[in-house]
Design a protein around this nucleic acid. Structure first.
Lengths: 334, 334
DNA sequence: TCCTAATACTTTATCGCTCAAGTTATCCGT
DNA sequence: ACGGATAACTTGAGCGATAAAGTATTAGGA
């Protein structure tokens, strides 16, 4: 399209410079160029531009599950920070699968994104992907899920504390037999379980292995797992669920069994998804400020991308906050 | 990186062809190239490739709201169809804003996506964006929302029928005073309202203007709108809500007012979001097969992108289906 | 044996842009 | 009047790939 812009009788380079507000162009020429450019509604070809500048201004955002609105909210936060800085997020969904994730990252790399934000679905210990990233010197930030054995920038929640906070809350509400529906075998799932254990131990309660159940990761996880729990004896009177979707499923199972929440069984989740308040029983949860996680990760990544020398690694923990709703509110306490 | 591949003593072109299974390369050479490529773990640079081929194998997916899991599900469907064909979806969120949408589309165009799938946030009558697309001959498919005055490929729901179906169902359940919380001023919102009107007219019921309320588009739309409705007299005994998030908010408002759903007020939404079953009152809804919408749109777009001559325009309507849950189930009828 | 044709490569040009290094003018001080 | 600085351009080279056309080399038929 630039050849067309040359009907102003100036060189291609002049046009190029004019478009980028380069210093050595006269105001007059710049205006002429801009005017003509609008007339032809020409748009510079980013792909060609990227090829020579080595910058795409694209950031890959790799998420395990868009249906889980926690991640949708993170994505929103990321976009909100990135857009004003001229970057754009390319969202890819791995559906919680490590291989898909690796493929998607490869795709983003061959597409030459400037950086990556990843909520990884790699099982803990699978560090290969991150080795690759380090070797290729691609700036990246992990979010939500720490990967054991990977030294990397991280933005997320202190999951062990989160687990302890949730479990502690149930105990505070008078629960004597607290169970846990655990999440996937990754940093987050494991840390929350650890927090659960810590809280029980701290209060001198015994940890019963059959109170810790897990299910396939999927829409019915919570429901299925809770049905299992309902069969254990003695039946638990409080359940800390890995996250809100799981907790919502758990509530359904409890009610279906003819029991009451929270009177018979108190339930708490994590993540504070936007519809938690509208569920069968409004759900107590731990708010993780998902949007803030996204924003912070975006900021951190920008720092890394803009830094000439590889910036030093940071781990940023966004404080989480207990949100008490009906599903765990007992005996008038708040 | 190809220069490195030249330590096999073959030309750059040979390597290029080998990587793309081009016909005139001997099996032996191809193997050597592939082997060496793996050793150096070289990845072709898509950005350079795209520059000359004019194909990026990227598809822009422009959505108004990722937090609404209807769209997240659509995205999933799109990705599922696209990935096996070698395409990838770039998801951008417009947050229901027409200007943001135009900017995002521009970005995708300068990034030279091969095609677009758009659930547009343009107000009806704002056809400028689509004019641009047509002029630049970018293949695109609209989903979910018809744009009045734009001749384009479309995949979605017959919204007027959907509205009529939902409203009709409420009437069937014995509601005498059916209200409607309407959606945005776009094709979808308008068509659903039209369907609501049609159903009422068909059954000889009067249409009361104050039974049609709208709110800002946002998380509280349903809640606020329902509070308004509760003040009207006579109070409605059935409400068809634009979509499930709105309906969920409406349910909350009803319960909060000390009334029962569905006994006092029956409620139905649309979209069948994945958590509808877990809500305060399990929500009746119209299932729109969101994933199928995504898949179909992806298929249609691929046809357009692969066609040499601009393929003829198609409008595909995915059948929708009434899902009756507690929020509208009265007097033992199902 | 010679000529055609397929096979397996190599060469050259180009995609749309930017970088770095020229090239003109113009202005200014001495 | 002349060297040097500045402003405002222009010129080549090249980013990493591919398409198209050209060149050997071998095979086979008449």
């Amino acid at each position: 399209m630039k050849d067309i812009a040359l009907d102003l009788g100036v060189s291609l380079m002049t046009v190029s410079k004019a478009l980028r507000n380069h210093s050595d162009i006269s105001q007059q020429t710049r205006d002429r160029v801009l005017k003509r450019m609008r007339e032809l509604n020409y748009q510079p070809d980013w792909i060609a531009r990227s090829m020579v500048t080595r910058r795409t201004y694209l950031v890959g955002l790799v998420l395990p599950d868009l249906m889980h609105s926690f991640f949708a909210e993170v994505a929103k936060g990321v976009a909100r920070k990135l857009t004003p800085l001229g970057y754009h997020a390319v969202i890819l969904n791995t559906e919680e699968d490590g291989d898909t994730e690796r493929r998607h990252v490869e795709i983003l790399l061959t597409r030459k994104v400037d950086g990556l934000i990843i909520a990884s679905a790699q099982r803990s210990g699978q560090v290969e992907l991150f080795e690759t990233l380090r070797r290729r010197e691609v700036p990246y930030v992990l979010i939500d899920r720490v990967i054991h054995g990977v030294e990397a920038n991280f933005v997320g929640t202190k999951d062990e504390d989160l687990g302890a906070m949730a479990t502690g809350h149930l105990i505070d509400q008078g629960c004597k037999k607290v169970a846990h529906i655990r999440g996937p075998q990754n940093g987050t799932g494991t840390a929350r379980l650890k927090g659960y254990r810590r809280a029980l131990t701290k209060r001198g309660m015994t940890i019963r292995p059959n109170y810790i159940v897990s299910g396939q990761y999927g829409d019915n996880t919570g429901y299925e797992a809770m049905r299992k729990l309902l069969k254990t004896s003695p039946r638990p009177d409080g359940v800390f669920c890995y996250n809100d979707p799981v907790a919502a499923g758990a509530v359904k199972a409890v009610l279906e069994a003819g029991l009451r929440v929270p009177e018979d069984i108190a339930i708490i989740g994590a993540g504070n998804v936007h519809y938690s308040d509208l569920l069968r029983v409004p759900l107590s949860t731990i708010d993780q400020s998902s949007a803030t996680i996204g924003e912070t990760a975006a900021e951190l990544l920008c720092e890394c991308m803009e830094a000439k020398t590889p910036a030093e690694m940071k781990r940023i923990f966004i404080p989480s906050r207990l949100v008490v709703r009906d599903s765990s509110r007992r005996n008038g306490t708040s």
